[in-house]
Computed example of a mutant assay.
Amino acid sequence: MRIFISSLISGFEQQRAAARRAVTALRHEAVMAEDFGAQPNSPQIACLRGLRESDMVVLILGEGYGFVPPGSTLSATHQEYREARETKPVLAFLQEGISPGPEQAAFIAEVQAWEGGLFRGTFRQPDDLQDGVTRALHDVTLANATGPVDERDMMTRALAMFAPENRNQVVPTMLELVVVGGPNQRILRPAEMEAPQLVEHLEQTALYGESRMFDRSLGVISGLDGSDLLLRQERGASIRLTEQGSIVVRLPLDEPRSARGFDPMSGMVLVEETVKERISIALAYVAAVLDRIDRTQRLTHLAIALRVAGADHRGWRTRAQHAANTNSIQMGHGGVQARDPINLLARRAALGLDRSALIEDLLVPLRRQYPTAN
């Protein structure tokens, strides 16, 4: 691989040399401004061209923001980062014990926010940086040492993970989200699926994590279902995890009765804000589980499928619409056709970088499947 090393040059010579040693020790090619020689264009144009011709970027951030070229509001390193993040992996490393100024602090915060669960680390000395870059590049190599991504197969597997729906029986209304990763490979060995540490982590994250899915007042039943690990609660919430790292999340959509009394129409509508909240929770939980079971990101692509079960005759309202008219509703009647799951394909990084867009891309087509409950 051709790996572009992006950082300040003046004052960072030792750090850049350490990054070069890490890159070349793993038999990759380091692309560095120091090696460009005389160029007909400006140094920044030469650097951006070298970046575009590279496969990956190692970004090294220290205390200084660097020179801002005339006609720009960003430093050269900041421009390189903005260019790289749209098209290639960025392995960012931050120097510890520094006091950055406002511009550099904002740059660091931008990188850390964008990185999400991607590789990044900190360092104190050049040797620390060399070790960190070596480990990150090794992890990237492992992550990419897999078969090709077959998106059609991924989506077929995702849709097959929905349980058959009995539309002649009254069942709780559930949001069901399936996420299948690719390339297709085994992520967890059978012994790992049985490990108490994995079950405990999944339970604790579902009950107390930032992406809390389970009701803390209810117990959790967990165990193997065939070769899958299954966690479930009485109201129907459940999590299924396969050896291939596929995840199925089921969450109740009916909101609890409020302290102001029972809403007789609550079982007749899907409340948009509730659906959106559940999608957000489910995607955040999936991201947390993938970070736990596949730290080196062997799964690089995702097939995501979503449906609502048990809502054949419901209408769709926002919370404000429902609060304004709780006593009447327009709803579907007999002969409602089965609604196909909403599905999309995404890079795994989108779970951390662009989750809001994923939520919207699932919610809007789902909303269109239901009559507006005026």
Rank of each mutant, 00 (worst) to 15 (best):
residue 360 E to F: 08
residue 122 T to M: 12
residue 279 I to F: 15
residue 278 R to I: 02
residue 329 I to Q: 12
residue 58 V to D: 11
residue 112 Q to S: 11
residue 61 L to N: 06
residue 150 D to V: 09
residue 364 V to Q: 05
residue 348 R to E: 10
residue 18 A to R: 12
residue 274 T to Q: 13
residue 189 R to L: 13
residue 173 T to Q: 03
residue 286 V to Q: 10
residue 251 L to K: 00
residue 251 L to W: 05
residue 153 D to E: 15
residue 98 I to P: 03
residue 1 M to F: 12
residue 73 T to W: 02
residue 354 D to A: 13
residue 181 G to L: 02
residue 342 I to C: 04
residue 134 T to K: 06
residue 146 T to Q: 15
residue 154 M to W: 04
residue 231 L to P: 10
residue 208 Y to Q: 09
residue 203 E to S: 02
residue 367 R to K: 15
residue 6 S to I: 02
residue 128 D to R: 12
residue 103 E to S: 14
residue 239 I to Y: 00
residue 146 T to S: 08
residue 2 R to L: 14
residue 86 E to I: 01
residue 52 R to C: 12
residue 361 D to P: 01
residue 4 F to L: 01
residue 190 P to T: 10
residue 129 L to S: 08
residue 224 L to C: 02
residue 61 L to H: 07
residue 291 D to N: 14
residue 124 R to Y: 08
residue 33 A to E: 06
residue 125 Q to V: 11
residue 296 T to C: 10
residue 146 T to F: 07
residue 217 S to I: 06
residue 362 L to R: 07
residue 283 L to T: 08
residue 91 L to I: 03
residue 233 Q to H: 06
residue 19 A to D: 00
residue 62 G to M: 06
residue 312 D to C: 04
residue 68 V to I: 13
residue 68 V to K: 07
residue 158 A to M: 06
residue 224 L to T: 04
residue 333 H to N: 10
residue 250 R to G: 04
residue 348 R to N: 10
residue 10 S to W: 09
residue 182 G to V: 07
residue 146 T to P: 00
residue 201 H to G: 00
residue 70 P to N: 12
residue 348 R to T: 09
residue 150 D to A: 12
residue 151 E to Q: 14
residue 86 E to K: 09
residue 83 E to W: 02
residue 367 R to W: 10
residue 172 P to W: 06
residue 69 P to S: 08
residue 206 A to C: 14
residue 154 M to G: 05
residue 155 M to A: 08
residue 102 P to M: 01
residue 187 I to P: 11
residue 282 A to K: 07
residue 153 D to W: 07
residue 75 S to W: 10
residue 280 S to H: 15
residue 94 L to N: 06
residue 216 R to W: 07
residue 40 P to L: 03
residue 27 R to D: 02
residue 308 V to E: 15
residue 151 E to V: 11
residue 107 F to A: 10
